[in-house]
Simulated scan of single mutants.
Amino acid sequence: MSKIAIFDYGAGNIFSIKVALERLCVDVEVIRSMDNLDVYKALILPGVGNFDPAMKSIMPYKDRLLEAIGSGMPMLGICLGMEMLFERSEEGTLPGLSILAGEVVMLPRSVKIPHMGWNRLRINANSSNSVLLNGIDDGTWVYFVHSYHARPKDARVVSARSEYGVEFPAVIEYGNLFGTQFHPEKSGSDGMHMLSNFLNYLKR
């Protein structure tokens, strides 16, 4: 398998996702430019940070990123990395990548924010062909650290949901695009299984 790129836009968990992938015997490289995306098998947008600073880092490469995704490059967005796929976020004023229709909104103020800890996945009944969730049981516990969540316009992109004050998408899948609101690299053996599922997808 060729190298997988992790784009560094100032996120705080690059080391943990890199180590998790290396445990799965993957050649991983942290990149700060997307000028040479064609040399990588897949791209990961990691998941800790603020929306506007992350978008400022990624916007110079937006056209190149859209071109790569349009040509079939698999991409996994984790937490903020998934949120940036949408059109806008209440966390900032800059537009998102607008690859997926919808917005990102704050969790309800009736619960403690940020949502930090373990919650169950509720896998959609129509997700039998899910790539990330292959071999994952409904009700599996995964680890979240977030204050915002996606609100897609097309519910069909949602493979699993979770609940914290409100029900929200936990797994997004659309063609060669994959996203998790939780952190698979912090979700124990089940999270590693999902990362392994993503890697197996790259072999197709």
Rank of each mutant, 00 (worst) to 15 (best):
148 Y>G: 04
115 H>V: 14
114 P>A: 11
166 V>R: 08
93 T>R: 13
91 E>C: 05
137 D>C: 12
95 P>M: 02
112 K>C: 08
102 G>I: 00
134 N>K: 15
100 L>S: 02
120 R>H: 14
151 R>V: 03
168 F>V: 09
93 T>L: 11
81 G>R: 07
67 E>H: 14
133 L>C: 03
152 P>Q: 05
140 T>L: 10
140 T>D: 06
125 A>I: 12
102 G>R: 00
78 I>K: 01
155 A>S: 15
172 I>W: 00
156 R>E: 14
81 G>M: 04
99 I>R: 01
119 N>R: 14
67 E>Y: 11
165 G>M: 09
73 M>H: 07
154 D>N: 11
98 S>W: 03
132 L>Q: 05
162 S>H: 13
75 M>R: 04
112 K>W: 00
126 N>M: 08
68 A>P: 03
106 M>R: 15
101 A>C: 12
147 S>A: 10
120 R>L: 10
69 I>C: 05
111 V>M: 11
71 S>G: 07
80 L>C: 10
87 E>R: 01
106 M>W: 07
93 T>C: 12
171 V>G: 02
146 H>K: 04
140 T>H: 06
149 H>D: 02
107 L>Q: 05
133 L>A: 05
99 I>D: 02
168 F>T: 08
161 R>M: 13
138 D>C: 14
97 L>H: 00
113 I>K: 06
86 F>V: 01
137 D>A: 15
128 S>H: 14
71 S>Y: 07
90 E>C: 07
90 E>W: 01
